[in-house]
Each structure stands twice: as structure tokens, then as C-alpha cells.
């Protein structure tokens, strides 16, 4: 079970005003492109369509038939770093750039330490990390960008930027257990109102996430994986480093022993008499071996 702090997103209270998206961009100095028609219309209110190198948070939109004559199930969701307790990105990061903030449990990063390897991208079961700069063929200078949980604000007694701006109160911030209790209570209310699929998301997933969701509609309407997992290969790869170290020492030791047994090795100079098929010691002139071609020797 997770500890520390949590952001609670209640999808049933969200009005999809995207104020949280704007607040995130303002606080983290991540302006949207200002050129006219930069964002192509894709038929959805979801804009930009996914997280990108300068967008750490988006509100997702999904429409589903409600089985009634009028109306639809219009689901608003939140897509950003989930701040997992078992964070695959932290496990995969070779430079220590990505880390758990001990006090809050949020997964943050030290941009100076980012080497742009993008291993975090391949590790994250939520497909969250993006990189600023260097996205071309040689992607020199790529540096990670993702939600930090606003730990800079939290440590100064404030809530994350997205939470403070949320008008309908869909976003709340507090101790993890307290937020979980609020989420569970809200799910019971939603179920009583007839939203049978209502559920808490984030309590069990990847060790408990520090972003908890109250989902009003079925999970398929939100851009959240059903069963996010940390690939076992990430753990295996972390074992390879000590294995390589031990293997290298054993190899150098073995070859060192081999070298010592060969010190002082000498062999007499030989030549081959191809006419008689004899191998002859050059110094003594002695035939040390005859190749019997007739017997099939080579």
C-alpha cells in the first residue's frame, strides 16, 4: 500500500474545463504553440490529442452510447504521470535522474541528470514520459519532461498547480489514505445513483499510485490500462550490471591464469618439405613428422 501524498481526480465532478492543463503549463513554463492552427482539428475536444514534450497533463474525452433514447455517456478523464509506488521509470533510469520523493511518494526528476536515453519511455506502463529537445534522428540533447507532482509547491505548503485551479473540485490533494477514503466514499455515492461501473483506480495498480482516480463510467472510456505491469525484463536488466561485473572479474582472472601458464613458452621453428611431405625441425634438420598422403593424411 502506498504512503505519502496523493492527487485525487474525481471524473464524476470534472467539467472538462481544462483549467488544470492551463495551470500546469503556467506553473511549469510550458507554453502551447502560439501559431495559428498549429493543432489540427481531429473531431475531439481532447487537445492536444496526447501528452507531448511540453504538455504534462491532458483531459481525455470519450463518448459512449448510454442505451437510452437521448444523451450519451460522456466521460472526462485525466492523463498524466500516475506517480506509481513501483515506478518502472525509476527502475529503468540508468542515471538516477528519475526518483521517488521520499516525503510525498511522487515520482520526480532531476533534469540535469537526464542523459536522454528514453529508457523511461519504454518502461512506463502508462506511456507518460516525453522529452524536450532532440527528437530527430540523432536526438542530441533530449531531456525528460513529465508531471513532477509539483513537489516544489508541496514542499512549500501548497497544492499542485492543477489542484489549486480546479473549479468544480474534481481535483483534491492530501494524504494518500485520506484521498483513498474520499474516493471510496464517492464511488459508493455514484453506485447508489446507478453508475454500476464506478470504481477507484490506483489503489492496487503498480503498488498503489499517487494519483487516484474515481471513474464514473467503465474503464474502457478512460485512457488507463486495465492491468498496468512493470515488465520483469526491467528487473532482469538491472541484474545484468552486477553479473557483468562478476563475469568480467572471472574472465580477467581466468585469462590471467592462462597467461601465467604460458609464460616462457617456446617451440622449435618448423618447415614443410612439400615434395616429401615431411615436417622438418629447421635447427636440427630432423624430420619430426611424415605426412602419409597415401594413407589419406592431409
Amino acid at each position: 500500500m502506498a504512503e505519502g501524498k496523493a492527487i485525487l481526480y474525481d471524473a464524476s465532478r470534472c467539467s472538462a474545463c481544462k483549467g488544470c492543463q492551463v495551470a500546469c503549463k503556467c506553473w511549469n513554463l510550458l507554453p502551447s504553440p502560439m501559431e495559428k492552427n498549429t493543432q489540427a482539428w481531429n473531431g475531439s475536444m481532447q487537445c492536444p490529442p496526447d501528452l507531448d514534450h511540453r504538455t504534462r497533463l491532458i483531459i481525455t474525452f470519450d463518448e459512449a452510447d448510454n442505451g437510452k433514447k437521448y444523451g450519451i455517456n460522456w466521460a472526462f478523464g485525466r492523463r498524466a504521470c500516475m506517480h506509481c509506488t513501483d515506478a518502472a521509470c525509476v527502475m529503468a533510469c540508468p542515471s538516477g535522474c528519475l526518483y521517488h520523493d521520499e516525503e510525498t511518494g511522487m515520482v520526480s526528476f532531476d533534469r540535469d541528470k537526464c542523459i536522454g536515453c528514453k529508457y523511461c519511455v519504454s518502461a512506463c506502463p502508462f506511456d507518460v514520459p516525453r522529452h524536450i529537445g532532440g527528437n530527430g534522428l540523432f536526438d542530441a540533447g533530449a531531456k525528460i519532461n513529465k508531471c513532477t507532482g509539483c513537489i516544489d509547491r508541496i514542499k512549500n505548503g501548497r497544492s499542485p498547480a492543477c489542484v489549486t485551479t480546479c473549479q468544480p473540485g474534481a481535483l483534491q490533494f492530501g494524504d494518500w489514505e485520506e484521498m483513498l477514503a474520499v474516493a471510496k466514499e464517492r464511488v459508493e455515492v455514484l453506485k447508489a445513483k446507478g453508475f454500476e461501473s464506478a470504481q477507484v483506480y490506483g489503489e492496487e495498480q503498480v503498488g498503489g499510485t499517487h494519483v487516484l482516480h474515481v471513474l464514473k463510467y467503465p474503464l474502457e472510456q478512460y485512457e488507463l490500462p486495465e492491468n498496468p505491469q512493470v515488465s520483469p525484463l526491467i528487473g532482469a536488466m538491472n541484474w545484468m550490471k552486477p553479473i557483468l561485473g562478476v563475469g568480467a572479474i572471472a574472465l580477467v582472472g581466468g585469462l590471467g591464469l592462462s597467461f601465467l601458464t604460458g609464460v616462457g613458452y617456446k617451440r622449435p621453428e618448423m618447415r614443410y618439405d612439400e615434395a616429401n611431405h615431411d615436417i622438418i625441425n629447421v635447427e636440427t634438420g630432423e624430420v619430426v613428422r611424415h605426412i602419409d598422403k597415401e594413407a589419406g593424411e592431409r
Binding site: 528514453k118 529508457y119 519511455v121 519504454s122 518502461a123 512506463c124 506502463p125 506511456d127 527528437n135 530527430g136 534522428l137 540523432f138 536526438d139 515488465s231 525484463l233 526491467i234 536488466m237
Partner: peptide, 15 residues
């Protein structure tokens, strides 16, 4: 991880 955005599973296996 540069010009394409390959699936995470493929990248992890390749790593």
C-alpha cells in the same frame, strides 16, 4: 525512440 514512437513492449525486449 527518435523518429518513431515504438510500442513500449518492443523497446523493452530490444533493450
Amino acid at each position: 525512440l527518435s523518429v518513431f514512437h515504438a510500442p513500449a513492449g518492443v523497446i523493452t525486449v530490444m533493450r
